[in-house]
Design a protein around this nucleic acid. Structure first.
Lengths: 129, 129
DNA sequence: ACGTTTATCAACCTTTCGGTTGTTTAAGCG
DNA sequence: CGCTTAAACAACCGAAAGGTTGATAAACGT
């Protein structure tokens, strides 16, 4: 269940849209069909269906069959994975080093200062096509 | 400090890229210059500079002047804002309603079932160009 | 003053994204 | 068996993203 780079890509990308975030917000109150989700917006149902495709591809929601309707369900586990990733980095320096940056940087080139290591996301992790 | 839709847009969009996430990971260990950030990747420094522009526009990092270098600093507060937004929705239904969805949906059209209201992100919140 | 380092700006190209319309499939309903 | 509804699929289009190269600006060192 460890989120790899591609999974984080699709998840964050999916949330980088106000319509899709609204859909998430709506689904947090319970499952809904495409038509129910599309109604509050001025965009077409096809567009909403595409948005849901994006969310589904990011594993943030799942579509189930139920008669002729296809309710969309939220997947809280994936949201949890995102907060886990973010916390991994935001917890390190909760702003208290802000004024010491200049000092740390001045002798950082020699690699002798007190540092805050022990991380698991090694730096070179990504590549694009 | 409340994150509006546009702020969340840019922040999630910024994190939806493995290079930019790697930059965040690196900056969580301390500030760094563009050259230092660019070295581990095969893309040009200009490209990395653009990535940092995106992160800066999303308020995830800040650029300071210091001699002829321009160290990039992480902004943990903005990361915290993201987790706050996500938690707002993932904490609602931690998977326990999964099997009750069919029942809830069947009488949801009449609007009489027990629900989980009291949310502040009202549904119609977004629009595109 | 000149060159070097650091980093940004500008133009350009290619790919992807978000949305549209139009056409199918699938499942009820009368 | 048709008719309506729900929703996906497909083709198309404008806009934006991600990257490249080339030129420009700012702050040193000598």
């Amino acid at each position: 269940m460890e989120p790899d780079a591609a999974a984080l890509d699709s998840a964050f990308m999916a949330l980088a849209d106000p319509v899709r975030r609204s859909i998430i917000a709506r689904l947090s109150r319970g499952p809904a069909t495409v038509n129910e989700l599309a109604e509050p917006f001025e965009i077409s149902k096809q567009a909403v269906s595409k948005h849901i495709q994006v969310l589904e591809q990011a594993n943030l929601v799942t579509r189930t069959r139920e008669a002729q309707r296809r309710p969309v369900h939220l997947n809280p586990a994936r949201l949890e994975a995102l907060t886990a990733w973010i916390d991994q980095y935001r917890l390190v320096r909760e702003g208290q080093f802000r004024s010491l940056d200049a000092v740390l940087r001045s002798n950082a080139a020699t690699g002798s200062g007190p540092d805050t290591r022990s991380h698991h996301e090694q730096f070179p992790e990504a590549q694009r096509s």
